[in-house]
Nucleic acid binder design. Structure first.
Lengths: 187, 187
DNA sequence: GTCTATACCGCGATAGAC
DNA sequence: GTCTATCGCGGTATAGAC
């Protein structure tokens, strides 16, 4: 897996994989039919293990919504900061999503979908929040954070399009749930 | 460029490129020093040409903000629907962003940055809108749309995590600029 | 089950004629 | 400037011994 993450699918050779695994090439081929079979098996497994979003806490927390969501956002960004392999994994899945659509769908199913669904459930069920469309609110929240990571970390745009993490999170929360001060045509 | 878009960087051979261009391989090498030089030149050029966001209109429109933003969002999604090559281009740039960081930065500089900056300017300058942080509002708007495209089209998640485009746009606009009906602890 | 050895092919890059 | 021909290497996948 390390080889695929570093070099991508096409540029990774079965020789390097066998060497990294400490076995011969023929042994690798005895466990997996071919290179695509090995690749899909590895990515599918990683898509099940990796967790971008910390969902357990969100389902059980009794903290105030603003604080809970702030904590949720910070945990996600901390995950990525602590494990940069996540960035490489995202690059690989997106980069190969045209040629391995089933792997991309595994990523959506195991990582994106639970995140949006749990957050939607949280936003819909918490009595202090009254969104007309909780799913869109969840998509806006997660979409803004993912886009922040995509531009800043994945695409190396931190210096080109800089913004403080705390400012983004605080102002995003204010925009979405604490927006009663700002209205159109204030009267 | 077609070869790179379809097969990715590593899986594209200089033989195929030469054949697709209708010249010999030596001729390609007389114009570009090596494969990486050709690749970077092509991607840099495409990053300047492609436009995800239609910015001209947004700077000159006199329509009501909600309508102008709705039009802006629809134009962006129409662009992508009309030219699926954009999806392949995004896959390629993100997929190679670890090995070609300067290309990823060209993407941010020429596509993401102008989009966020022009939208920020619009949100900040329009008298009917009073955001405490217009840049975060712009990032939330664009981030939600990009994430929608990323999950649905790039990662083939339309069926796994379906949502109507019009619902997303309308509810997103309501969430961000028309949110005076919904408040925390309504009194 | 795992090894060594190899078949067979395509790769990036260049030499040298025209 | 563009061509044909070629070099040297590394690719995926397998055969057959242990």
């Amino acid at each position: 897996m390390q080889e695929f993450l570093v070099h991508g699918y096409a540029a990774t050779s079965m020789d390097k994989i066998a060497a990294a695994a400490g076995v011969s090439k023929a042994t690798v081929y005895s466990h997996f039919h071919d290179k695509t079979g090995l690749f899909t098996a590895l990515i599918q497994r990683l898509a099940c293990q990796k967790e971008l979003f910390v969902l357990q806490e969100l389902q059980t927390t009794q903290a105030e919504p603003t604080l809970a969501l702030k904590h949720f956002a910070n945990q996600m960004l901390n995950n990525i900061a602590a494990d940069p392999q996540i960035l490489t994994f995202i690059r690989l899945v997106i980069g190969e999503s045209g040629r391995f659509p089933e792997l991309a769908q595994a990523f959506v199913k195991n990582i994106e979908k639970p995140g949006i669904e749990v957050l939607t459930g949280y936003l819909a069920s918490h009595p202090a929040l009254q969104f007309p469309d909780p799913e869109v609110a969840a998509r806006a929240f997660i979409g803004t954070l993912i886009h922040f990571v995509l531009v800043g970390r994945v695409l190396h745009g931190e210096t080109l399009l800089p913004i403080e993490r705390e400012r983004l999170i605080d102002q995003l929360l204010d925009l979405i749930i604490g927006s009663h001060q700002r209205q159109i045509h204030p009267s």
